[in-house]
């Protein structure tokens, strides 16, 4: 099955699920589907990496299988596990059962195996791969290049239908070359003010166009300062919602001063913004 027919179609269908893609995003998403390669999405927190995977699943009507990575994640929780209790009971009940306790019946599926064996279209989201240990990357290599899993007792299980794989990373560590080589790479950065305005308007219905414009421009200015943590798109949306809740029509200096905490989370960043923007 092909996931999308062409680059323009990707843009349209993502827009249909409220995700505004630019040229780079649309092309990468299309290529990942057309070439059958995993898509590695890297970028700062809160620019819509996970959201992109959800949007792809939504736009193509596929099921989303999510593997959240964390330190200490291992095979048993990512790939598969044998149901020891059931195996033990079977052996106790039946002395001749030694041969068949490693079969389908005793296999516990974990996200990766589930995505491989599913015969419905599936989007596999491997979230925050940089949080997992380096060994997990090795575990993923077989799945990412050949879409198959080898279980020693059962043999190799190949994908019934290739899942659409999205990996996300915050770049807290450099991923291995082997992993990067197998993936298409998409770097998601901060959007242009025009695109950000449109994003805010889709995600915060009820906000006036004028206010969204001011919001996007102010955030662009904040990002140009040397801050410890630049405001993300998610925070801009929060800001929009805050202004809507407060019923402000205009983003003037007082309003910014009162609500700056929504977008800047470091004390020194706060001080710097107040000084540079001339707020009191």
């Amino acid at each position: 099955m092909s996931w999308f027919a062409g680059v323009p179609e990707v843009g349209e269908r993502l827009r249909g699920v409220d995700y505004l893609a630019d040229d780079g995003i649309a092309t990468s998403v299309f290529l990942a589907g057309a070439l059958g390669k995993p898509l590695l999405v890297e970028g700062p927190a809160g620019v819509g990496k996970t959201q992109l995977a959800k949007a792809v699943a939504g736009a193509s009507g596929a099921e989303l299988v999510r593997l959240q990575c964390y330190e200490g994640l291992d095979e048993a929780r990512a790939l598969y596990e044998w149901n020891y209790k059931k195996q033990l009971l079977r052996i106790q009940a039946d002395d001749d059962a030694w041969g068949d306790i490693f079969s389908e019946e005793f296999l516990l599926e974990r996200p990766l195996l589930k995505a491989i064996r599913s015969d419905a279209p599936t989007v596999l989201l491997i979230d925050e791969i940089d949080k997992a240990d380096v060994e997990v990357e090795g575990l993923l290599l077989e799945i990412l290049s050949d879409y198959q899993v080898t279980i020693p007792e059962l043999g190799t299980i190949a994908a019934v239908r290739k899942p659409y794989v999205v990996l996300t990373s915050n770049a807290t560590r450099e991923l291995s070359e082997a992993l990067k080589r197998r993936c298409l790479y998409l770097h998601l950065g901060y959007p242009t003010p025009e695109r950000e305005r449109d994003i805010v308007l889709t995600r915060v219905p009820g906000l006036s166009g004028n206010l969204a414009e001011q919001l996007a421009r102010t955030v662009a200015t904040l990002r140009s300062l040397e801050l410890k943590k630049s405001p993300s798109i998610a925070e801009t949306i929060d800001w929009g919602q805050t202004l809507l809740a407060l019923g402000r029509e205009e983003l003037d200096e007082d309003t910014i001063g009162e609500t700056l905490g929504v977008v800047l989370k470091h004390h020194s960043d706060h001080g710097r913004a107040v000084k540079e923007l001339g707020l009191s």
């Binding site: 062409g6 680059v7 040229d23 780079g24 092309t27 290529l31 070439l35 298409l184």
Partner: peptide
């Protein structure tokens, strides 16, 4: 391979196709 499936006349998608496959 990517060049085979995209619209070569569209310069921006050509650029992004190269970026997605080569620039990691």
């Amino acid at each position: 391979n990517a060049l085979m499936v995209i619209d070569l006349m569209d310069r921006e998608s050509l650029r992004e196709a190269y970026a997605a496959t080569l620039i990691k």
